[in-house]
Design a binder for these strands. Sequence first.
RNA 1: GUGAUUGUAGCUCAGCUGGUUAGAGCGCCGGAUUGUGGUUCCGGAGGUCGCCGGUUCGAACCCGGUCUUUCACCCCA
Length: 454
Amino acid sequence: MKPGIPKGTRDFSSTEVAKRNYIFNTIRHSFENFGFQPIETPSFENSSTLMGKYGEEGDRLIFKILNSGDYLKKVDENLLADKDSQKVTSKISEKALRYDLTVPFARYVVQHQNEIIFPFKRYQIQPVWRADRPQKGRFREFYQCDADVVGSKSLWQEVEFVQLYDTVFSKLGLNDTTIKINNRKILSGIAEVIGASDKLIDFTVALDKLDKIGKDGVVKEMLEKGISAEAIEKVDPLFNFSGSNQDKLASLEDMLQGSEEGLQGVADLRTVVDNVESIGLASASLELDVTLARGLNYYTGAIYEVAAPEGVKMGSIGGGGRYDDLTGIFGLKDVSGVGISFGLDRIYLVMEELGLFEAVELPKPKVLFLNFDENESLDKIKAIKTLRQNNIKSEMYPDVASSNNQQKKQWKYATNREIEFVVTTVENGTLVVKNMSTGEQTTCSLDELINKVQ
RNA sequence: GUGAUUGUAGCUCAGCUGGUUAGAGCGCCGGAUUGUGGUUCCGGAGGUCGCCGGUUCGAACCCGGUCUUUCACCCCA
């Protein structure tokens, strides 16, 4: 049997794990610094919790878990004969793997509403699964790092999330990211003004592709979706939107005079943009992007998306927004939420491409004791015990060398693992230590070694 | 889901238009030399050429299917 793992999944070497942990820790630290507290939810949920929350496309991408037991026996024979996969699936699968962290969080909030202190600021760092076809920066198992606030409609939270994005990416050394921001109310307003409110989703999905397929492509897709040419004519300025965030807000305000909702969106965005400008960002830039729509249907207010630094070809490395009624589906009305997500795996790829992992300490020992003489082994192990008590990673080569070649193998082991210090002999409290990078060999006491290494 | 693309020793890859026992480098194992490594040399193990089927006297090489890789679309982190 040949070893292998399922499509779209990965093994991680210890070097990779160290780098990933570096990102995890940076994000976790910032989340807590901003006042968020952790929760975790199960890897799989009841299908009814997940299905129908991500649109038709989303349902298709949810990994379904087969019922245990003799699951076919309970299914009606006629249903099986019809070969309607969707209907049969709902009969033989009642659980599914987590598709994102937001919906399980909404479920959590409703289920634990009596224990939660609102406004509730939670963060969650866990893997999610999607039955997508893998490609660059896209996997079937990947980590999301989410921070959300529920129970507050304050725009200050939306300002804070821009700060949070900036903080994390700056700390990671991932400078010059672009935090794109938009507001669903503006999109609704535009649709209203042009008389295409009933086609809001089609309209936004098409508009979202502007930077990818250009004006002609977007117009073509809108026409195909049944949006009239006259309507498209009215939003023409959107296709050549430029200038500062303030310029954009001003021209949006003009365009949306007929829509109360649209004007509210402009006002909201202006509040966020003004305040972020006043507070300042460390390394990211905030860009108002009217074409930003994102596919998820549940966003109702602010929409965020983070683009990698220019020149790095990668989909968005973060996204989020406000959803006014996510918990409504589970029976808790009038709880507004807003949140953002970091895509760990894509951040990793971008950082790797930019060579930003130099500072990450790899999990390897600082001192290696060679094992050439059985009589010295015990003294070496005792010395190692002291080193470890001083927080110096150290180890002894496990097998005693019984030949020249085996000694050579131990040296090679030290070289390959890039271990800095090698101790060859320990005699009467005196150690012979070799600095592997300089080749310099010295004799010293254990205390002197500890000083040298620290 | 649509359209391409990839698959040969542990790793990176050769293998001419199908022709007898499929190769290299690195790595690994054993040994020699270097006082104690990153040098050099000798020897060795290791492959159902992704899998299944077809064409052919004969296939790693041609055809079909399937899985896998990578990429684009869709969608998204």
